[in-house]
Design a protein around this nucleic acid. Structure first.
Length: 405
DNA sequence: CTTCCACGGGAACACTGGGGTG
DNA sequence: CACCCCAGTGTTCCCGTGGAAG
């Protein structure tokens, strides 16, 4: 029998090295970021002279090379430190994953060889463990806090503690690099924290169309075999990305998926048509993924919106109607419904996820509401919802049965 | 000027899953 | 082992508030 993997082993006619297009790939050459690299390197160079580098705040929209630049510069720094035998430790934390004060400190403490459980201790204990760990040696420690805005709401305490930690250290010198997508993030912090964490700030402006093109061409040369790309492919990817405030990550992803589709259809070249299909594919995939991972109650709310759309034929709904329908559905399923207050929050979450558009409107005599409309194709949501819906119902049934038994 | 409805901030609570201690 | 402590999450309760229609 033929091996089932045989089909996949054959050399792709399209790709040379697909990894180059993945978000995790850190290029050795970052076009149009010379200034930022220089500034960052300049600030961090203090570490080499035995001084404490300033805390740095880096901001700019997503996909403009912030993380790539910081990682690139920090690995360079690490290399040179090793060479001149200067003690230096660099820790990278993504605050989207370690998104509370406890988790951040617990992770840091572990990095510095302390045994701390990921849950259970009082926070101040974890904090002092971390401090001891860092202070154990005379060295320069650089902590990179990526996506720091994700930490803000739940863990601004963490930022406060970090901002004043240097005064409590005897041996080590600590430098914090905060990376944020949210431009206004630092302005929202307490003055003391802000001053301390943004001793140096570096702005990453969005790429313009020409710069995007440069980057895409550069990567495409590494990723694809020679001349498999139609001439219009890159300009089209650039055009789509430009709509997304110059997000390179999205552009590269689009390019990769286009190539995959071309590969899959046994096409010898990547055509504009493949890019269009890739875009649809990415859109649908994203929406399906988001809807599927929604908590049950949010799904029910989304379902209410869809139902009102299809039955009432209205595209713009008021929160009152949505809440009523939601309650009906809950009754029908025998689920406890949430309060209006809570539903308001869930609706806002759906808004942030980009599934619906929810604007507060004042309707005078008729009070204040949210005007809600679905902003993604109903079919995508519907299909993602129905699959999960049955499972949810099933589990509810099972729960009911087991509780009566 | 009143009235109306739900927005959205904040406190309080319940619950979970993990600690340490005697 | 029983028991209490702790952070984190999802929720409810309470309530002051916006602002155009009437």
């Amino acid at each position: 029998m033929e091996n089932i993997f045989l089909d996949f082993t054959s050399e792709s006619g399209i790709f040379k090295d697909k990894e180059v297009l993945r978000p995790a790939y850190i290029p050795a050459y970052l076009p149009h970021r010379k200034k930022q690299i220089k500034n960052l390197a300049g600030a961090l160079s203090a570490a080499l002279k035995g001084e404490t580098p300033p805390n740095i705040f880096i901001y700019g929209k997503s996909g403009v090379g912030k993380t790539a630049t910081v990682k690139y510069v920090s690995t360079e720094l690490e290399a040179i430190c090793k060479k001149i035998d200067s003690k230096c430790a660099i820790v990278y934390i993504n605050a989207e994953i370690f998104d509370t004060q406890y988790r951040v400190f617990a992770y840091l403490a572990r990095v510095f060889n302390k045994r701390v459980p990921m849950i259970g201790w009082p926070t101040d204990m974890v904090y002092s463990e971390f401090k001891d760990g860092v202070d154990a040696e005379k060295r320069c420690v650089i902590i990179i806090l990526d996506e720091v805005d994700k930490l803000a709401s739940k863990g601004d305490e963490a930022l406060y503690n970090l901002s004043k930690i240097n005064s409590e250290l005897n041996n080590a010198r600590l430098c914090i690099i905060c990376i944020s997508n949210d431009v206004t993030f630092m302005e929202l912090q307490k003055p003391g924290v802000r001053a301390s964490l943004s001793e140096e700030t570096i702005l990453f402006p969005p790429y313009d169309a020409y710069q995007l093109r440069d980057i895409l061409v550069d990567r495409a040369e590494k990723a694809f075999n020679i001349s498999v790309l139609d001439d219009e492919v890159i300009p089209l990817c650039v055009a789509f990305a430009a709509q997304e405030h110059g997000d390179v990550r999205k552009a590269l992803n689009l390019l990769r998926v286009s190539g995959e589709i071309a590969d899959l259809t046994k096409s010898k070249k990547v055509h504009v048509e493949h890019v269009r299909r890739a875009r649809e594919h990415i859109d649908e995939g994203r929406i399906t993924e988001v809807v599927k991972t929604l908590p049950l109650q949010s799904k029910l709310i989304l379902n209410s919106v869809i139902r009102l759309n299809s039955e009432g034929g209205k595209t713009h709904l008021f929160s009152g109607e949505v809440y009523n329908t939601y309650q009906n559905i809950c009754d029908h399923l025998g689920i406890e419904s949430l309060t209006q207050r809570r539903v308001t929050d869930l609706i806002s979450e759906l808004d942030i996820l980009g599934l619906i558009d929810a604007r507060v409107v004042n309707r005078g005599r008729y009070g204040r509401t949210k005007e809600i409309s679905l902003i993604v194709p109903t079919e995508y949501v519907q299909s993602a919802l129905t699959g999960e819906y049955d499972e949810a119902l099933l589990s509810i049934k099972q729960k009911a049965e087991s509780s009566t038994a």
